[in-house]
């Protein structure tokens, strides 16, 4: 009986490892791709792993950027500023909204929540024109708020945090209320730390959304020095005479876009599996 259990356990672990390896494939491919020499980049059928790794693509990217009017560092700086502010602000807004919806019954709460859930169903293209009108009429074209504002509303974040915060026992908040915590203190010192796994998840989602976002640079920024790194990446291979030029530089740039996502996730994923809301309650 015990052996059977062990065998099923082992086969389960093996299966999970296979799934994990499968999920890793795109990341491995992007890393490997960045180090491929040109002949391997265009080989048909494509090779998954690099055979003769080279740093030639990195050199090419540096050459491209040194020739461009706006330095790469400016795009990166813009991306970092926009992503950092978007992550902080959208996580705070989602958490506050989730907290209000989960723990403060008010008239129309269900309607507000349903509307937010409904927003999850809209494709980004549907809201492109309204977003443009909002940003343009608020006079936010060519400004950082023009990058950030459209990304602040994160329905999936609100949904996630509301569901998580509903699990916080009311007695926990009541105990803090009796202990003298203000409403904001309750939110900051109890609700957010207890929901840290969900907060971290929302932060990851917000970062992924903003770091790789192309839309705000393409539609709301006319000045080149206000555009972000993904936009620069998209211009590397577009509008060129052929499909071969700068493919090496593009492969490296893709890796550069991926790396912060990876680092951000690795940093926060420990939180995701760390504390859970019920650990202090029987």
């Amino acid at each position: 009986m015990r052996l059977r259990f062990s065998l099923s356990r082992i086969s389960f672990v093996v299966l999970m490892l296979l799934f994990a390896a499968f999920m890793l494939l795109p990341i491995v491919f992007i890393i490997s791709h960045a180090f491929k020499p040109y002949d391997e980049l265009f080989v048909y059928p494509p090779e998954f792993l690099v055979k003769h790794p080279t740093t030639q693509n990195f050199v090419e990217l540096m050459q491209v950027t040194s020739n461009s009017l706006i330095p790469l560092s400016r795009y990166l700086f813009n991306s970092i500023v926009v992503s950092a502010l978007t992550v902080v602000l959208s996580t705070i807004i989602s958490a506050m909204c989730g907290y209000a919806l989960a723990k403060h019954p008010f008239p129309g709460r269900q309607l507000v929540f349903s509307t937010i859930v409904l927003m999850l169903m809209f494709a980004p293209e549907v809201v492109q024109i309204p977003r443009y009108l909002v940003v343009s009429r608020l006079g936010l074209m060519n400004t950082y708020p023009g990058h950030i504002l459209p990304l602040l509303a994160l329905p999936v974040g609100v949904f996630l945090l509301k569901q998580f915060m509903e699990q916080i026992p009311n007695s926990l908040l009541e105990a803090a209320r009796i202990d003298g915590a203000t409403e904001f203190g309750l939110f900051l010192k109890i609700a957010v730390p207890v929901c840290m796994p969900a907060v971290a998840t929302v932060a990851i989602l917000a970062f992924q959304g903003s770091w790789s976002n192309l839309e705000t640079s393409a539609y709301f920024m006319q000045d080149d020095d206000m555009k972000t790194f993904p936009f620069f990446l998209s211009t590397l291979t577009s509008n060129l005479a052929n499909n071969v030029a700068r493919q090496g530089a593009a492969a490296v740039a893709t890796l550069i876009v991926l790396l912060p996502n990876l680092v951000f996730f690795i940093l926060l994923q420990r939180k995701v599996i760390d504390t859970m809301a019920h650990s202090g309650i029987k």
Binding site: S171, A175, I190, M196, G280, I281, K282
Partner: peptide, 11 residues
Amino acid sequence: MVFQNYALYPN
């Protein structure tokens, strides 16, 4: 106040 489920702050 002391609550039935202790209501200790888990964090």
